[in-house]
């Protein structure tokens, strides 16, 4: 391989690169002229671009969140803000109408109702779906919001209160109740009898034996004589088909001995009043609302 010496290919008359492999040489075909022109124009263009648009990343500086602001004063953050302002302006009309309307009023106005459901669904996905699931179907320990069994009440107002202040949350207005751990109060055999009584009652069989007395003495004060629960206390209905922590003998015993207590945060300080109301209406619409 020699340098500084032009090698011309015999057949094509084109200059070669001088590289040779087993007698095969590579033609040094120049770039098409138009391509080169476009290339140079791009380079010139890029210089202007550097100054016109935010291009240089810096750790601090004039630009929002670091970086230069080009002479066009355009940033993606500004673009986002503008787009959001547009959407807010579009929503403003509905927001104010929604704010002025009662829950009943919203539920009878197709436009406002659709607005509430859309907002509620989006807020639900962002905030509630983590525990209750995207469809609100819940999981063991996290209530299913689609069914018609409500621990603390299923009217829109009840749901609004629960969402706003939470259950066993640090908020002063929180819904609160706590089932005692009966492992310290009753013996194992008594707990077993009690669990058997509750399971049988849920299945529709009344057993007027020792379990009934135990139930009346220990449980009825919160869960009611007919075991239908008490929504003001958050005491679950024990005779319906829905079990929060499971309905087998063993699961019931475990819950009597050392009850699990779920905690739901208060959302009042985190979400706007309109969002809370939208959430209440949305959850109510899932199918089980009272």
């Amino acid at each position: 391989m020699t340098q500084n010496e032009k090698k011309i290919d015999e057949f094509t008359g084109t200059e070669t690169t001088g590289h040779e492999w087993d007698g095969i040489t590579e033609l040094d075909t120049p770039m098409p002229r138009w391509w080169l022109i476009v290339f140079y124009v791009c380079i010139i263009w890029s210089v202007g671009y550097w100054f016109w648009y935010p291009t240089w990343p810096t750790f601090s500086g004039d630009g929002e969140r670091g970086g230069t602001v080009g002479s066009a004063q355009w940033t993606q953050y500004k673009q986002l803000e503008e787009a959001q302002a547009e959407i807010k302006a579009l929503r403003a009309e509905y927001e104010s109408r929604f704010e002025a309307a009662s829950f009943k009023g919203v539920q009878s106005d197709p436009t406002l109702y659709a607005f509430a459901l859309a907002g509620g669904k989006s807020a639900f996905g962002d905030n509630c779906a983590t525990c209750h699931g995207t469809g609100g179907a819940g999981a063991s320990g996290y209530p299913n919001l689609n069914d018609d069994d409500w621990l603390w009440g299923g009217t829109v107002d009840d749901i609004y209160q629960t969402v706003s202040y939470g259950i066993r949350s640090p908020h002063d207005e929180t819904r609160f109740s706590e089932m005692p751990a009966f492992a310290d109060i009753l013996s194992d055999s008594e707990i077993s009898d009690l669990a058997g009584f509750v399971a049988a009652k849920a299945a529709g069989v009344d057993m007027p034996d020792i379990g009934a007395t135990l139930y009346a003495d220990n449980c009825a004060v919160c869960h009611a004589d007919n075991a239908g629960g008490d929504k003001t206390l958050g005491a679950p209905n024990l005779v319906d088909a829905i079990w929060f922590y499971g309905g087998t003998q063993g699961e019931i015993e475990a819950q009597i001995k050392k009850p699990k207590h779920g905690m739901m945060p208060a959302w009042q300080d985190r979400l706007s009043e309109n969002t809370l109301r939208q959430l209440a209406i949305y959850v109510h619409s899932l199918g089980g609302g009272e």
């Binding site: 469809g135 179907a137 069914d147 319906d240």
Partner: peptide, 12 residues
């Protein structure tokens, strides 16, 4: 509906 596929109601 796919989510939830069905809902168990309190009366069975």
């Amino acid at each position: 509906d796919r989510n939830p596929l069905f809902v168990q109601l309190s009366d069975g």
